[in-house]
């Protein structure tokens, strides 16, 4: 069974961490993944840096710019991940924008993902209909789950459609916002979390965007299966370096 689906069946709220590969230092990717697993993170999103990340706020943008300046490339990422499966067993998802994947070649990219043991992809600017028409068969062939986003503005009809074509989890964007907001969740957002929970979708939901600490993690996972932290972790790396990951994870989900 796909590692993502297996993980989703565990009887607990899942904590996922996003980080940009090649950041803070170009060769930190593997060490960060191992450290996140060791400290109990349930699954990881590995960011493939892009020059123009439309859906991201300044923190993730900046980390991408630095990674690219250090020489991070798609090939480099696959090289770094070559032996990852001999050491890491939690689900690994690559999150990247579509253009670098298109230039690498979608088929070749998916084959590489399978080869190194990637379980799924999140590509924010690859729309569902284009995916279904052109790429689904390739993803399926290589055993990759494609994760789609919904937002507070997504219509019920479209959520049902996305639920239908999803096979893993649905990425619930918490608020109308790019990544990195730290405002906390107001009543409106909590009502949206509940509304989605009440839809009884076939796929579990994992909340992302705006989760930065224990409070927001708990709010997000009151109904949802899990939550993803990105910018707050990048900020932590920026401040404390990669040797202090344990503190960050414990601050979000004390043991």
């Amino acid at each position: 069974m796909n590692r993502i689906k297996e993980k989703l069946q565990e009887d607990k709220k899942l904590l996922s961490i996003y980080f940009t590969s090649g950041y803070p230092e170009i060769n930190d990717t593997v060490q960060i993944i191992k450290s996140l697993e060791k400290n109990g993170v349930d699954f990881i999103e590995i960011g493939l840096p892009f020059s123009d990340p439309l859906a991201d706020g300044p923190t993730i943008q900046e980390s991408s710019t630095i990674a690219l300046k250090s020489g991070m490339t798609t090939n480099k990422l696959f090289e770094q991940l070559k032996d990852i499966r001999s050491e890491v067993s939690i689900p690994l998802i690559i999150m990247g924008y579509f253009n670098p994947i298109l230039q690498f070649g979608v088929e070749k990219f998916c084959a590489k993902c399978e080869e190194v043991g990637i379980d799924g992809l999140i590509i924010p600017d690859l729309p569902v209909d284009v995916y279904n028409d052109n790429y689904k068969a390739i993803f399926d062939k290589h055993g990759l789950k494609n994760i789609f986003l919904i937002t507070p503005q997504t219509s019920e009809e479209r959520i049902r459609f996305i639920d239908e074509v999803s096979d893993g989890f649905i990425y619930m964007v918490s608020t109308a916002s790019v990544t990195g907001s730290t405002k906390g969740f107001g009543e409106e957002t909590k009502a949206y979390f509940k509304r989605i929970a009440d839809m009884k979708l076939k796929n579990p939901q994992v909340v992302g965007f705006g989760i930065s600490d224990e409070d927001t993690f708990n709010d997000a996972t009151k109904y949802a299966k899990g939550a993803i932290i990105g910018s707050a972790f990048i900020k932590h790396l920026n401040k404390h370096g990669k040797n202090n990951i344990e503190d960050f994870v414990k601050s979000v989900r004390p043991v």
Binding site: P127, L149, T151, V173, A176, V178
Partner: peptide, 11 residues
């Protein structure tokens, strides 16, 4: 052409 947009822009 087409519309390669993140879901946040879809509506």
């Amino acid at each position: 052409g087409g519309a390669f947009i993140p879901e946040m822009l879809y509506p």
